[in-house]
Design a protein around this nucleic acid. Structure first.
Length: 276
DNA sequence: CTCCGGCATT
DNA sequence: AATGCTGGAG
């Protein structure tokens, strides 16, 4: 499934030149030089997912029946934390090795067993319990499959906008929206690509970022922008002290060399909270 | 807003 | 040693 991301990313990278022209569909609304920025980030070659490491799991996933593959996609997405993807993949693999990637198996499994298998991922306790609940719901309502719409996915415990859009893309090959995680959210704000309605302020929630980004970003970029910015965000445009000197697109970035921990809005918020 | 909870980064 | 972090729920 991670392989799918790479494939889509590569396909888009090769057609990016073409997609630059399609941006003329949204004149005035899109930020200046956004094509150059995406191109520049692509050239820095920090794709999020290591192709070699993902191959093994990808094969295992591809051999599953569609229903089981989709459930595996959902389970894996639930465990994911983009900043620590190797940990996520390890946890998914351990579940898979123990035959615990189907709704049926998880429903029958002991919650403690699942908790131990996914232990290295963040929030393992909550995620183990959510996984059990989701397995139960999938069996009762969807015959062991997963919901096929954003609305129904959002009803599952522990599934929010980020995971539901990811699952629609990876599980159903259906692009309903951009998968906005913390990296996409942070970087789009630094680039000045999204703002709160009418004002020039940064968006506060990833969900706001998603809507704002979708207003102007051409559809063919909706899937590849995630692995592109996740990789970039982990290696160069880091949350604290971004490496602007090494960044090939800093000349297009209004926040370049300015975004120190003290000026980032999250730090401001926590600093404010401590004072109160 | 806080919380989760081990881990990376300072 | 201390801080800050995932994405979602309450």
């Amino acid at each position: 499934m991670f392989g799918l991301c790479i494939k889509l990313f590569l396909i888009s990278a090769t057609t990016r030149t073409r997609s630059c022209f399609s941006s003329k569909i949204h004149p005035g609304e899109s930020p200046a030089y956004w094509e150059k920025v995406l191109e520049g980030i692509g050239k820095m070659k920090c794709v999020a997912y290591d192709p070699v490491d993902t191959m093994e799991w990808d094969k295992a996933g591809d051999n599953l029946p569609p229903k089981e593959r989709r459930f595996a996609v959902l389970a894996s997405s639930l465990l994911s934390s983009q900043t620590k993807e190797h940990v996520t993949r390890g946890a998914t693999r351990r579940l898979h090795e123990n035959g615990l990637l189907t709704a049926d198996a998880i429903e029958k499994a002991d919650e403690e067993t699942i908790r131990k298998l996914i232990y290295p991922v963040g929030f393992y306790s909550r995620k183990a319990s959510n996984l059990k609940k989701i397995a139960n719901i999938c069996l009762m309502k969807y015959d062991g499959d997963i919901p096929s719409s954003i609305e129904e996915l959002l009803l599952l415990p522990g599934v929010g906008p980020k995971i539901s859009h990811l699952v629609m893309i990876l599980g159903w090959n259906n692009v309903q929206g951009i998968c906005v995680d913390t990296h996409v959210h942070r970087i789009c704000n630094r680039l000045g690509w999204v703002s709160r309605s009418a004002s020039k302020q940064k968006t506060l929630m990833p969900e706001e970022t998603r809507v704002a980004l979708q207003r102007w970003l051409p559809r063919e970029e909706w899937v590849p922008i995630n692995p592109l910015l996740v990789g970039f965000g982990r290696k160069i445009c880091t949350p604290l002290w971004p490496h602007c000197a090494e960044c090939a697109v800093s000349r297009f970035c209004p926040s370049a060399f300015k975004d120190t921990p003290n000026s980032s809005f999250k730090s401001k918020k926590s600093a404010l909270n401590k004072k109160l």
